[in-house]
Nucleic acid binder design. Structure first.
Length: 492
RNA sequence: CGGGAUGUGGCGCAGUUGGUUAGCGCACCACGUUAGGGACGUGGGGGUCGUCUGUUCGAGUCAGAUCAUCCCGACCA
């Protein structure tokens, strides 16, 4: 059948690419590396947005919107920042088209060349700090805590659906503070928000940690990350929070008068998560039957499938199912009654499984007589027939159970694929098997680079809340002294 | 930008040493039978074979050019 997936174990990439399309999440667009997010996929993203947005607001953050275009001169003010992004920017050079004088179609009007080129934002630090300069005069203006939900463009050489696309949706928070301590605390607070969201909502066990200087955001003094493990053992950076120090304040000359009247540069953070979380969700939980969505994120939590032969049978079954639907909805559960008569039940079962709906209820004439329903759960692919009375209460708790079980499954998988490694020879073969290796590192960029060149493995993070191993040891590569283990992995 | 591959109805493919009307599966349309794990039967619609040039009596098939896409690298959330 057209809907069948390549098995995960056979070709992980192909399985992933097919799943994105077959679960109706997204498809490729006419422009290479860009993606159409379809309604079902977007509904999941919207759910992520609304939950995260509420969390941000609890920390005092407000939403705002800054322009898509950044004048080239703004962009080039912070040296490290430019160096980090210059190679992947879309640039607007003209503002008008004209009819091709030599024939059909249109060409760029050479008369309409812009005096200063505009960069399509790859991230908004520069434009935002050029604006913050006008907002900040006094210590009384601080802190400023803004977030924006928007799209950004990074012209990547190679793209993959959700994980790396030329254009993607994200949120970027940008805060300005009077002191370094306050800014660092904010960066920590936000990475905690991300970690809680990943664990509680996405059912994704993540490791929180610091990036090594090599892997740090361009222009940051410190980058905090949440790192997740995918089912092929590769690491995925799922969100980052940066302590930017005074780099951007100095580049954009943003100073405030403190309570003694002295001018001080402002301290900054920025933090973001993107539609890459969709990729993380897919790769962490899905199986050969398709998507597996944690109930807290599923746009449809329960699907009802009627089974019938005649119209009378359908009416009787639908009556019962509608009653169940109302009762579930009264509990705040989102329900879909699949009453299409154009496809058969078996087709519906397979289709909703592909789309990852956590719970399916099937009800037919047989059940009506016996007073039962069939309840199937997506995470375990098991089903049981139970009395129709009390089924809604059962499903309410079942959704919680499924949420926990999906997290547990991912947690156990990760636990089984994290191991310590103390020998360089062992490292070289072990790292290729996938998973995270906890190893001693001497703290130098040279060692990290050498390891990357030889094995493609990078330091995913220096963990702060999971697998923390502060202990004396020797660097796995250089043999120099080390004060703790860090997480090495091959990453997306 | 380096290495590899592929372009044939919406999708996935076949198409022999060049040979006449370009074929198959899925999807689609109609009718009927079906319906508790991706239904079946019968009938039907839809493609000039990525593009250009060449070789030839004759090109989906051979040659050259060109464009596009995909995979592996470099780069990256």
């Amino acid at each position: 059948m057209a809907k069948e997936l390549t098995p995960r174990s056979e070709n992980y990439s192909q399985w992933y690419n097919e799943l994105v399309v077959k679960a109706d999440l997204a498809e490729q667009s006419a422009v290479r590396g860009c993606m159409v997010i379809k309604p079902y996929g977007y509904a999941i993203w919207e759910k992520m947005q609304s939950i995260l947005d509420a969390e941000f607001k609890k920390t005092g953050v407000q939403n705002a919107y800054f322009p898509l275009f950044i004048p080239k001169s703004f962009f080039s003010r912070e040296a490290e920042h430019v160096a980090g992004f210059a190679k992947e920017c879309a640039v607007v050079t003209h503002h008008r088209l004209m009819n091709d004088p030599d024939g059909k179609g249109v060409v760029v009007d050479p008369e309409a060349k812009l005096e200063e080129e505009l960069i399509v934002r790859p991230t908004s630090e520069t434009i935002i700090w050029s604006v913050y300069k006008n907002w900040i005069k006094s210590w009384r203006d601080l802190p400023i805590l803004c977030n924006q939900w928007c799209n950004v463009v990074r012209w990547e050489m190679r793209t993959r659906p959700f994980l790396r696309t030329a254009e993607f949706l994200w949120q970027e928070g940008h805060t300005a503070h009077a002191t370094a301590q306050e800014a660092e605390a904010k960066a920590n607070e936000m990475v905690k928000v991300y970690a809680d969201f990943a664990r509680n909502t996405l059912a994704l066990p993540v490791i929180v940690g610091h990036k090594s200087p090599n892997e740090r955001f361009a222009g940051a003094l410190d980058t905090l990350t949440i790192e997740a493990m995918m089912q092929d053992g590769k690491a995925l950076q799922a969100g980052t929070s940066h302590f930017l120090g005074q780099n951007f304040a100095k580049s954009f000359d943003v100073q405030y008068a403190d309570n003694e009247g002295k001018l001080q540069y402002v301290w900054a953070t920025s933090w973001g998560v993107s539609t890459r979380l969709m990729g993380a969700l897919i790769m962490a939980h899905s199986d050969d039957n398709g998507l597996v969505l944690p109930p807290k994120l599923a746009p449809i939590q329960v699907v009802l499938v009627p089974i019938y032969k005649t119209e009378e049978e359908f009416n009787a079954v639908a009556l019962k199912l509608n009653a169940i639907k109302s009762e579930l909805e009264a509990k705040g559960i989102s329900v879909k009654l699949d009453d299409r008569d154009t496809v058969r039940p078996g087709f519906k079962f397979a289709e909703w499984e592909m789309k990852g709906v956590p719970v399916r209820i099937a009800l037919g004439a047989r059940d009506l007589e016996a007073g039962t329903v069939e309840v199937a759960r997506r995470d375990t692919l098991t089903k049981e027939t139970m009395p129709i009375d009390g089924v809604c209460d059962h499903i309410e708790s079942l959704l919680g159970e499924i949420q926990d079980n999906i997290y547990k499954k991912a947690f156990d998988f990760r636990a089984a694929n994290i191991r310590k490694c103390d020998s360089w020879e062992e490292f070289k073969t072990e790292i290729q098997k996938g998973g995270f290796l906890l190893c001693h590192w001497d703290g130098t960029a040279e060692t990290e680079q050498a390891i990357k060149d030889e094995t493609k493995a990078t330091i995913r993070c220096i963990p702060v809340d999971t697998c923390v191993c502060e202990e004396e040891g020797k660097d796995i590569y250089s043999g120099k002294p080390s004060h703790g283990r860090v997480v090495f992995a091959i990453s997306y």
